[in-house]
Computed example of a mutant assay.
Amino acid sequence: MTTELLYRDDAYRREVEATVLAAGPDGVLLDRTPFYAQAGGQPGDAGLLRWQAGETPILKAVKGPDDTVLHLPAEGAALPPVGATVTAALDWAPRHRHMRMHTALHLLCSLIPGAGVTGGQIGADRSRLDFDLAAPPTKEWLTERLNALIAEDHPVGERWISEEELDAEPGLVRTLSVQPPRGAGRIRLVRIGPEAAPVDLQPCGGTHVRSTAEIGRVEVTKLENKGKQNRRVYLVLQGE
């Protein structure tokens, strides 16, 4: 059994009808879902499953075995019967903030070229990236340049390449602690800017906005030393 990951083709799809393949204390397994399963520093989506006889709140989506997504219900919540048709609906507000944050972090990467990313975490209110870097730019410079890139309204797109193509361009991978998943034969690239001259291009399985202007204004609020060669950069969204 596998789960069709609808967010890969349309990150703005807020709900969908799906069939229940399994349901138990470990979660609800659907044949298709708009829920992003927690991975790569991006939180799993929350939301609601509704069916003819009831509904259950979903606290978080996580990865299950064999390319599936498990929707974790609230404790004691009713579970839909296997085979039932459910409406899987996202809690959209935090998901959209995660999309804006994730795209902003890609822009942050573009401003610190050549430095590997050693860790990161996406949040609805605050996010961070850790860089293998001795001396980062100032938070004021980063804030100014990020907002300039956002205001330029660069398109955000994606394409797929083979694992062999990625091996031929190892510089596309910015993360040192987590490598793109292999075994499926292809790797998803997220691009900001035009194909011919991207602002940022790197492997990513997360969800993103369609253009940088949708991010809104951001601020780099803090830089921390987390070791001799590790610098943590904190980022917040300004406004709703």
Rank of each mutant, 00 (worst) to 15 (best):
L146M: 14
L79K: 02
V16R: 09
L129P: 02
I161N: 04
I161M: 05
A115Q: 06
L90Q: 10
E158W: 15
A88M: 09
D91E: 14
Q238T: 14
L111T: 07
W51P: 00
P34F: 11
L90P: 03
T221S: 13
G54M: 06
A148C: 03
L59W: 06
Y234H: 15
K63S: 12
G119W: 13
T56V: 12
H96M: 05
H102Y: 10
N225M: 14
I215F: 08
T138E: 14
E4D: 15
G120Y: 11
H154E: 07
G183W: 11
K222Q: 14
I122K: 01
V173A: 01
A196T: 10
D125H: 09
R50H: 02
V233D: 02
P25N: 01
G206F: 10
P170L: 02
I58Q: 05
R174C: 02
E4K: 15
F35M: 05
E163M: 05
L30M: 05
W51K: 04
A37P: 12
G54L: 07
M1I: 14
D66G: 13
E195P: 00
Y234I: 08
E165N: 02
P80K: 05
V218I: 08
V69Y: 10
R217T: 07
E195A: 15
D66K: 14
H96W: 14
R32G: 04
D200M: 09
V28Q: 04
V82R: 12
E55F: 02
E164I: 05
P81G: 01
V178E: 11
E55N: 08
H154V: 02
A124S: 13
T87K: 10
L29H: 10
S177V: 06
L189K: 06
T85S: 12
L49C: 08
H154L: 14
T207Q: 10
A53C: 01
V86A: 03
I187Q: 09
T56I: 02
Y12D: 04
G227I: 07
A74T: 13
M101G: 00
T87V: 15
L70F: 11
L146C: 11
V236I: 15
T3Q: 11
L223G: 09
G193L: 07
Y12V: 00
A93R: 15
V233P: 07
R231L: 10
R191N: 01
K60G: 00
T33D: 06
G206D: 08
E164V: 09
L146I: 07
E214V: 07
L108N: 01
W160S: 10
I122A: 02
L235N: 10
L107D: 03
D200R: 12
R97E: 06
G239R: 10
R217W: 09
L129D: 00
R186T: 12
N147M: 13
R100Y: 04
S211H: 15
D200T: 01
T68F: 04
D66A: 15
A23I: 03
W92Y: 05
G54I: 03
T56Q: 00
